[in-house]
Design a binder for these strands. Structure first.
Lengths: 338, 338
DNA sequence: CTGAAAGCGCTTACAG
DNA sequence: CTGAAAGCGCTTACAG
């Protein structure tokens, strides 16, 4: 294996100088630096992370703790975080937790381990507010970034507020003439996505409509829960003419169930979701939804995790108005944003 | 930080004995072993991976090299691999490569790095046959597992052959009375999924139908390419009454385009896909498709990577017959398999 | 079955 | 701007 000493010999400098070049330390003459860089390239040298970590107390590893679920939101965060880590010279350690088995990620045998000694940890929903994990990470003394966290506590919170964009989405439905608009709301109160419910209510009130509790049904972000909500809402004495679901998967459940019951989308029922997931484009009619800048959030999280400033960071939501509300009959052929 | 010496002191043994217990070496008295294990638990000790790696030439890290694409197939492999790594006491290092920018993962600045010194590497499509990457991994002397690889060469090949299950799927369409069956085939010849085309042709021939080249259209696994294929196929003088797409995303493109053109599914056109992706269940009617045991393949890959035997390993494909061919009007409410 | 020595490939202070 | 010493937390041989 090529080591720092091989590079030093090849470049005719002390191995310490090589170390300085690798770490971008200023105190190296330009000529030396270039000589070392040539040697590194010629030998194909890659510093051993483990040695750097042991000596320098820095691992260049970030751990992402994610649930083992099929949600595209999770997959998109995972991929974007991994890509961003690479971009800044870090490595991503993925810790995937099986939430289905209901094991405590802190206390069970299968608990999350920090033996890779990451430089920082990123937590995403539904763990962003998991007190046990947060406590464990704090006691390990690890920097923490919590994406879409609601509560305070240890760590940097990357808060998202979906209220305003949801207001805009509901206004779109109101402009189309809908007055009875149902919502499939997040069941768990401790989620950032609750701001979507606030936006829904605010938009209705602003239009002079009193939110009807019968039109608010809970879901757990799955397709099945969206379908069940649709069954319930469409059975109401005064059924809604539009339904907003707090996630695309639930919205697709609403759409499918409505179609199964014989309603046409959007003629009989308009449907809107949230996430701009890849699957929101795969149905006919395509689903109206809200684009969340997941890649940018992942970038921000990685930068926050390693203590770098990120310039030009804006969490810019965007309405994606499509056939499921507008009646537009074209397909969505562009690739999904990441 | 708690080190091996702290544990030794706490347990009243030499630190070498602790090391032996951690590594499960046999030469330790049962009593000693238990004493050490208690100390480890009491102190919450977790051995530093970097130190073990440096001293023992073993990192307990597996690298997965994956493309940065939105395909659920990729996300499912990623998640399953990460979960399996955890299960066997390893850590997953994710290297996500931006294929969109067309940068060479071996030669570009952004090339894949092995500075984490993984114990093994796992390659998935479309990299499973990437000669450059395979060569790099071989020259690093790293064990390699290639999931769904086609060609020979360095590394353990986890081959999949989809021919037989595709035959079964086409037979299902034939039984429904379809005689003109179109296919959206993989464009790239170097993919394991080409076995799906072989199965398609074999099933037709077995039924006494000569495959019609006009009914074979190429796609690149995206929704858009499926939609384009449908446009083309449905414009044929003798249009097909059923279309099999070699991936679910392409099948959904076929379905959406057909619906847009006013055809009813499956009355006017039956559609079938491949993957049993989560999104295959999110549409109405639900998509007939083939379940691929991705989680089991990931398990097998991880075990092969670390040189362990995996008992009871079967790549068991399964037909998932749903409304897009059968006309069944129920929704698919169970969670997707992983 | 248990222990003391050497060393993995680097970085961190500290000199010059 | 550059170098020689010490040490990060472990495992690998080698003794006993």
């Amino acid at each position: 294996m090529t080591t720092i000493r091989d590079v030093a010999r090849h470049a005719g400098v002390s191995f310490k100088t090589v170390s300085r070049v690798i770490n971008g330390e200023p105190a190296v003459r330009k000529e030396m630096r270039e000589r070392v860089q040539v040697a590194i390239r010629e030998l194909g040298y890659q510093p051993t992370l483990a040695a750097r970590q042991l000596a320098g107390h820095k691992s260049y590893i970030i751990s992402l703790i994610a649930p083992r679920v099929a949600a595209s939101y999770i997959a998109r965060i995972m991929i974007a975080t991994a890509a961003e880590c690479r971009a800044v010279g870090y490595h991503l350690n993925m810790e995937v937790i099986d939430v289905a088995h209901d094991r405590d990620p802190v206390e069970s045998d299968d608990k999350v381990s920090f033996s890779v000694k990451p430089d920082a940890v990123i937590l995403i929903p539904p763990f962003a507010d998991h007190a046990g994990l947060i406590g464990q990470i704090e006691s390990e003394g690890l920097p923490l970034v919590r994406i879409a966290a609601v509560g305070g506590g240890y760590g940097t919170r990357l808060a998202v507020n979906d209220e305003n964009i949801t207001v805009a989405l509901i206004e779109h439905l109101l402009e189309l003439g809908h007055r009875r608009i149902g919502i499939v709301a997040p069941a768990s109160p401790k989620l950032a996505s609750q701001t979507r419910v606030l936006g829904y209510r605010r938009a209705l009130l602003a239009a002079g409509i009193t939110p009807d509790p019968a039109l608010e049904v809970r879901g757990d972000f799955t397709f099945a829960s969206g379908a069940a909500a649709a069954t319930q809402l469409m059975a109401l004495p005064q059924r809604p003419t539009a339904i907003f679901a707090a996630s695309d998967d639930m919205a697709l459940g609403v759409m499918a169930e409505a179609q199964r019951l014989g309603y046409r989308i959007p003629d009989d029922l308009a449907v809107a979701g949230f996430d701009d997931s890849p699957q929101s484009r795969l149905v006919y009619p395509a689903l109206t939804t809200v684009f969340q800048p997941i890649a940018e959030m992942a970038r921000a999280a990685v930068h926050a995790a390693i203590g770098r400033e990120l310039e030009n960071f804006h969490v810019r939501h965007e309405l994606r108005l499509r056939g499921s509300t507008t009646g537009d009959r074209s397909l969505c052929l562009s690739q999904a944003d990441f």
